[in-house]
Design a protein around this nucleic acid. Structure first.
Lengths: 148, 148
DNA sequence: TTGCTTGCAAATGATTTGCACTGCT
DNA sequence: AGCAGTGCAAATCATTTGCAAGCAA
C-alpha cells in the first residue's frame, strides 16, 4: 500500500533534513502534486496542478528532491521529462507508455515474477561486473483512450 | 544470431524501398556505424565513427531510419539520446546503463524468462485495454570500469 | 531533368542559470 | 541578520529546420 500523504511528507522532510535542505512551501507543493496523480507527470502538468510555482522553481525543487532520493525523473521519447515520487514513497511499479498521446500509467507485476527478475538481474550483474541499483520496465503501445 | 552486415544492408534497403526512400551513402554510413558497435551510441559517438556525416544529416538520416523501423532511439537520463539498430536487425535484448559514465551495454535474458514476461505483459495489456507493441527493460547502476 | 539529400547556419524549445529580492531560522 | 529559496529573464545546448547546392533515378 502507498503511504498516506502525511507519512509521505514526514519522510520527505527527514530526507531533506539529512541533506541540510529545507522543506519549503514550494517543495511541499511539488510533493503534493506528485502524490496526487495516477502516474508520472510532466513539468507543465505539474504547474497546472500547482500554479503558485514558477517554472524555474519547479525545476529546481524537482532537482533537489531527486538529489535526496524522493523524486524520480523519467525520460521517454516525448518532449518533456516526467517526474514521480521515488519508490520508497510509493511502491515498486512499472510503466505503460502510450506512444500516441504520451500518457504514462503505473502497473505492477506479481511478486513472484519480480522475484524471478531480481534473480536474473543479479546473475547478469555479477557476470558483467555491474553494480545494479534499480531497474525499469516499460511497455510501449496505444492506450485505451487513443484506441477508441 | 545477429545478421551479417550484408544481410543488414539488404533488409535496410528493402525497408527504405517500401517507404519510397533512398539508401544513400550517408544512410549506409549510419547503419554501418550502428552495426559496428557493442551497444547503442550517441550522436557525437556516431559522428566520431562516421566523420563524413554532417551533424544535421546524421540526425535526419537517423529520423528516416527510425521512421521505417530499422533504427531505435533510446533516451535515458543523459544529455544525448542513443541510437541502435531495431531488433529485427539484431535480436531482442535489454540494457545495462551506467549512471556514472552513461555507457549502455546490451544484455539478454533467458527465453523462458522472456516468455513469462510476455505472458505477464499480455495479461496486463488486456486488463488495461492497452495495445502493447514492445517493451524495454533497463538495469541502472555502475559499470565495471567506473567501479574500479 | 526533377526532386530528394546534404551541409551550413540559423531557429527552436526544454531545461538551466545569474541576479536581485523575499522569507525562514 | 544571514543565508537558502524564489521569480524573472537571459543563457545553454541537443535537436530541428530553411535554404542553396549536389547527386541519384
Amino acid at each position: 500500500m502507498a503511504p498516506a500523504h502525511t507519512e509521505i511528507h514526514r519522510t520527505v522532510r527527514d530526507r531533506l533534513d539529512q541533506n541540510d535542505q529545507r522543506y519549503t512551501t514550494g517543495r511541499r507543493a511539488v510533493v503534493d502534486a506528485l502524490a496526487g496523480t495516477e502516474g508520472p507527470i510532466t513539468l507543465p502538468e505539474l504547474i497546472d496542478v500547482a500554479p503558485t510555482l514558477a517554472q524555474s522553481s519547479a525545476y529546481r525543487n524537482l532537482a533537489v528532491l531527486e538529489e535526496v532520493g524522493v523524486v524520480r525523473r523519467l525520460v521517454h521519447g516525448a518532449d518533456h521529462a516526467r517526474y514521480e515520487l521515488a519508490e520508497d514513497l510509493t511502491e515498486h511499479h512499472h510503466h505503460l507508455i502510450c506512444e500516441s498521446c504520451g500518457v504514462v500509467r503505473d502497473v505492477t507485476l506479481t511478486p513472484q515474477l519480480e522475484r524471478r527478475l531480481d534473480d536474473a538481474f543479479e546473475a547478469l550483474s555479477t557476470a558483467e561486473g555491474f553494480a545494479a541499483t534499480h531497474h525499469t520496465i516499460d511497455l510501449y503501445g496505444r492506450c485505451a483512450d487513443c484506441r477508441s
